[in-house]
Amino acid sequence: MYSKFNVFLIALFAPVAIASPTGEEVMTWLDTAESSNDVTQDMIMLIKRDDQVLKRVLKSESIRTNKGRKSFMEFSLPTEVKGTRYLTWSYDDPKLVDDMWLYLPNANLTRRISGSANRGTFMRSDLINEDLQSRSVQDDAHKLLNVEPCGEVQCYVVESVPYDSTSSSYQKRVTWVRIDIFLVHKMERYSKQGRLLKTTWYGGHKQFGDYWMAQKMITKSAVNDSETLIQFNNIKINVGLHETDFSQSRL
């Protein structure tokens, strides 16, 4: 039989159960990990569809503001899309609708992308225009589904469902968030009918100053035989961009 002292020792050294975080807490940590003030990077996009490979070269800039994040992209190759520009304003306030504009140099035309246009394909890739926008943590209800291995590390698996179903082309997103650096390892996007549409993997994570960044992402369609690889090069963090660099006049 155990003495009172034995029982005390067992209680003292027994493993302590640590409560799992909520889905919202995990996604907040993810948002915080990606909280650099500004980022510039060169991007190479390879779109593989059947036996065809399309190549796109562009530069991307983004900045965090007191209302959310703004980004600007300009294509340099191939010739037929050179000078095409995208400007995106993503808001943290879920009551505000994100703004997006596209400039087409051949037509010398700037048009606002909204509503059903958000479901349009981004430069013939496996991404749509909505995928370029940063969703606020407050836009969705988040549920922690699991903690499981993802490669050599562990990941939190979080399901995110929009509070306003009209605010997204997707019924839900499922995100694998690395526990070590709180960045995305993988993301699945589902149709309004609950069908898996595509999966995106992030890799080549590297530390730049105080922040970690992925150096590549691969999006594979679950609907057809296609995938899009994006390689991020010449990544620079906090170079001193200004919010004025992300005005509509730049288009």
Rank of each mutant, 00 (worst) to 15 (best):
V177L: 11
D92G: 00
K172S: 02
L251K: 07
F182M: 14
W212S: 04
I63C: 01
L96G: 01
I230C: 02
R49Y: 06
D126F: 01
D99K: 10
M100H: 13
P162C: 05
E227G: 04
K192W: 02
D50P: 08
M73H: 01
R112V: 14
H142S: 12
F182A: 07
T244D: 14
K236P: 04
D51K: 15
N238E: 14
I63N: 01
Y156P: 04
N118V: 10
Q41D: 08
M73F: 10
I113T: 05
I237G: 04
V157E: 03
V7N: 12
I18S: 14
L12W: 06
I179N: 11
Y86P: 06
K206M: 10
D140C: 06
M73V: 14
T175A: 09
Y2G: 11
L12P: 01
D51H: 15
F5S: 13
T22K: 02
D210S: 15
E25P: 10
P15L: 02
S169L: 06
V137P: 12
E24C: 05
S35P: 05
K82V: 11
P149M: 10
G194A: 10
V16I: 07
I235N: 05
R173E: 09
L77T: 09
L145Q: 00
T228C: 09
T84E: 12
S226V: 03
